[in-house]
Design a protein around this nucleic acid. Structure first.
Lengths: 394, 394
DNA sequence: CGAATATACTCGTAGCCCGAGCATAAGGTG
DNA sequence: CACCTTATGCTCGGGCTACGAGTATATTCG
């Protein structure tokens, strides 16, 4: 097999440039001088790298606000003609879009209504939007990155209880544009956003969990999600922490899912399974302040959440756990039962310093932000920069 | 903070050399020509890299067996004066040692008896052995890498039910030598060995589980273990898959551990908890062929194993699962209940192509081999090669 | 023995990163 | 306001890697 020639050199050339862009995404307001220090670049090397990056329209510079003595430095900014990524978040109630520049910032955020919830219609809407953006930005648009409230397996959506969809092929969204489509689970992408720019930026191992209908999440290591062979990992809700006699809609038994969301609250209150477990759960949480039955149900569910998280801390040994969606509300509403179950489920040696459980920082924006970051990772990888440079060298 | 100067260039220089050594460890019998193809190196670059590596005593070459036409190529061999790593495996019944060369091969394997099982004595024996090896190999010895049947937290052993130890500081093993000591859980290291040179070498995501007393293991991604913030990850046995009323010696409740080893078999048979659950389990497995009570207990335990593994497949989405220790024996002895529980616990979309469950390839050697590989990773990282080159350039 | 084949070595070139030295633009000082 | 101090950017020659093209070498095949 003849190796694509000059591949190593051509790629290695963009090694430092890729690191510069990664540093910029971590700290969008980083100065040129601070970047050079962080990457151990001599000032000469910084001059060279940035000249190259300016030349191919990756970066631009603007004067930085002056702090103290010395020659003023500059702020690194995405180039006006630089690469962009379309981030999409497909949710039960609507879908959202935004454009991301290489500094990780989102532009033109939009919330779109579903005209219908049929997969074909929704995907057609997404495709239409992508095409419009592609026409407007032309070759500057390098990828589309899609967050979905569903289990993802490669390019396929395989199960979406929130949307009520069966298996659907997502590749059609990018059809006709020739652009790469990156698809990911919404909770996984939110976890990436938390780990890079949210509540768990320490850079090591972090666990993000989000309770909505069921429970999703991801483990991140150095800001990368552990997503398995086909991107279907992170199905924390389908660990059998619960009662084996309960059959889950996913097909398995005893899923943790069934113990931690609105369905669980309804079961504990002896009420029928709610059509929309999320709003139901919010209502029960509101009631809990005055209604002792509701309070008791909330406590039971919070304890189930805490006990499961303890098991996951035993398993993963994360530095931090971040909680999103109903998770933080449950913990706030019933912190004593949550903490008790959490501590009780930890292996003894973890109890000396149990990992902090924090509320997620990004809220509803997590999936969209995560999708943007993953898209930018793709677009600013060394090989992708080499391709871009060939197209855009003036 | 003044950056260590020339750091980037000095390290980048060994980038390709590190890749060559990684390729060699993956395939110790790789030819020079095949290596160049795999790494997309032109023949000129290969000549240069190898000359450099020979010069600093990292590699040597010997004629390869001739296959077909063309100028014969060579096999890459560790240099006679090249770096070595001491791999150690501390187990309940004995401890083992071997020296590893950069091709990943083990030399001088030894099995050592415990004179006593007191931590101080055992660690003193390990330290003595390391010192002897250090005297003999001098600066060629670059690191010691230790596998232990225990939970590890940083440099400390925090809990060892197999050894009956409480918290112990392991750093003393390398005291006086100035060498880095890398400590890891035995099941984690065995998983690394399986993923790189064992039964799951595809290179993606793999899950390795080993049942002895309780259950340990690790998830590997591209041959690297997911070990958490302090290396304490992989405690699969302490996920609460079991009965919450059971208190585990680890301090938590309902641990999966309690359902899958000799202790579980004894419970199901109405016998008292065995002092040595491993040999007890082997005995029950032997009996199961003729004794229906034993067979039933084995089936129950195999089903608990299968159901738990299904949950972990839902969670991690691995390509393969490898089973070591009693795990493979249990599955073989009760394959029908195992398979039924495994399939029943999978999310529906996994059932179309459930990940294969395979027996581990390395058996008892897994932890030692994994320790060697991790030590070599440390020693052949770019920065470490730069240091070595400064010392050994002739 | 010569042709075909596969591989290794040689050499000039392109391009990265480096350090040292110089240039530049601020704040501080008398 | 001139001049010093400080922090930073720019220039330039050097050291190094990887590359391609050309050449040399060691086999098998006919």
């Amino acid at each position: 097999m003849p190796a694509p020639s000059r591949q190593r050199a051509e790629t290695a050339r963009w090694h430092t440039a890729a690191q510069v862009l990664a540093a910029l995404r971590r700290q969008p307001d980083i100065t040129r001088a601070a970047m050079a220090q962080q990457l151990h670049l001599s000032s000469g090397s910084a001059t060279e790298v940035l000249a190259r990056m300016r030349e191919v329209r990756l970066l631009d510079e603007e004067p930085a606000p002056i702090r103290g003595r010395g020659r003023p430095t500059t702020l690194l900014r995405p180039h006006r003609g630089g690469p962009v990524v379309l981030a999409l978040d497909l949710r039960h109630e609507d879908w959202r879009s935004a454009l991301a520049t290489v500094d990780g910032r989102l532009h033109e955020p939009r919330v779109h209504r579903h005209r219908s919830r049929e997969p074909e219609h929704v995907l057609a809407d997404l495709r239409g939007h992508l095409r419009r953006v592609h026409r407007r930005y032309g070759p500057r648009l390098r990828a589309a990155s899609l967050a979905v409230a569903a289990a993802i397996h490669g390019d396929r959506l395989v199960q979406a209880s929130a949307l009520g969809w069966g298996p659907v092929d997502l590749a059609s969204v990018a059809e006709g544009t020739g652009l790469p489509l990156l698809a990911g689970n919404d909770a996984t992408l939110a976890g990436i956003a938390e780990a890079r720019t949210g509540a768990s930026t320490a850079g090591g191992t972090a666990l993000h969990l989000i309770v909505e209908v069921g429970i999703g999440g991801t483990l991140t290591v150095a800001g990368e999600a552990v997503t398995g062979a086909h991107g279907a990992g992170g199905e924390y809700g389908h660990l059998p922490f619960g009662d084996r006699s309960q059959r889950c809609p996913c097909g398995a038994r005893g899923c943790w899912d069934l113990d931690v969301d609105g369905r669980a609250l309804a079961r504990h209150l002896g009420e029928p399974e709610p059509a929309d477990p999320r709003t139901y759960a919010r209502a029960v949480l509101d009631r809990a302040a005055s209604d002792p039955y509701a309070r008791r149900a909330v406590s039971t569910v919070a304890a189930a959440l805490g006990a499961g998280i303890a098991g996951l801390v035993n398993l993963h040994d994360p530095e931090v756990v971040t909680l999103g969606g109903l998770g933080s509300a449950l913990r706030t509403a019933a912190s004593a039962p949550f903490d008790a179950a959490y501590l009780d489920g930890l292996m003894a040696f973890h109890r000396a310093r149990p990992p902090l459980v924090l509320d997620a920082a990004h809220g509803d924006d997590g999936p969209l932000r995560g999708a943007a970051l993953v898209g930018l990772d793709h677009v600013t990888a060394e090989a992708a920069l080499a391709t871009w440079a060939v197209e855009f060298r003036m």
